[in-house]
Amino acid sequence: MAGRRIPGVTASSATDLPVLLAVDSRRLAGNDPVGFCRWLAALPVWFWPLAAALCVLWPALAQAQSGYTYTEATRALFKWLPFLVTSGFLFNVVISVMTMLIGTLAGVLLGLAQISVHTPVRIVAKSLTQAFRNSPWLVLLFIVLLAFPFEVEIGAIRIVIPDWMKAVFGLALPIMANISEVVRGAVQSVPSGQWEAAESLAYTRTQTLWQIILPQCFKRMIPPWMNWYAILTMATPLCSLLGVEELITLSRQAIEAEDNHPELLVPFYTFALLIFFAYCYPIARLTIALERRFTVKL
């Protein structure tokens, strides 16, 4: 009975007529607001042991060419592991959290400016958003690094700005721009009838925005916001290029301390990759779960 299969079309059990699957046009257009988390959350369970095995097995394959054995490489990794996690990866987490805080604050303000009634404000906010959203993150990082002073003087006190703080500001720029878009998109996704109903009930524009519109889109903003947090966390190794002592910088230093054996590269960097994925994976699962719940509810 089951006929030919047409891509994107399935036949339900009651009929052999093809039924068109519901497709989210935003996802097709590559504009999925939680695209990264959707991919990460969909990783199969066996990915994790496989990746872990790779960490250990790769040196085994490479050992034929070298006197340095994979047991030694693995032992080196385990020796450094607590240090890498507590001094390295935790620092990545700190950077990502601080960046997200600053980026969200600035992004919400910029997003609200994008829907301002004042045309100049709107134009400036829109240009800033587009500029920072579409610039390469690394370029933004370097600009902030070079443009910021090394120290600021407040009265008699001299405060030296550490590189990691500059990195936080640098990463906060694209996050700000993307959160700004999340806010604007969420506000504009509320049907115009809501504005009109509020207006006819004597609400002012500001009252409407804060009491009617924003509470409605708050939930809708959470999944894309979490998606940006996951993307940001994955991007924190960029800071190693500024010399910030985060996981990647420390891994490189650890490999150097272990005499730069090439067998060390794969276990160390695969471990770095894994720990990033492992940290973001639960976030991704939660994001997708929330996204499902919120879309069903509305």
């Binding site: 049907p191 009838g193 809501q194 009109e196 109903a197 006819s200 409605q216 509305l298």
Partner: peptide, 13 residues
């Protein structure tokens, strides 16, 4: 002046 719309426009939250 009160107004009622075709699409109700209740506040869903």
């Amino acid at each position: 002046v009160g107004m009622v719309f075709q699409q109700y426009n209740l506040f869903p939250h």
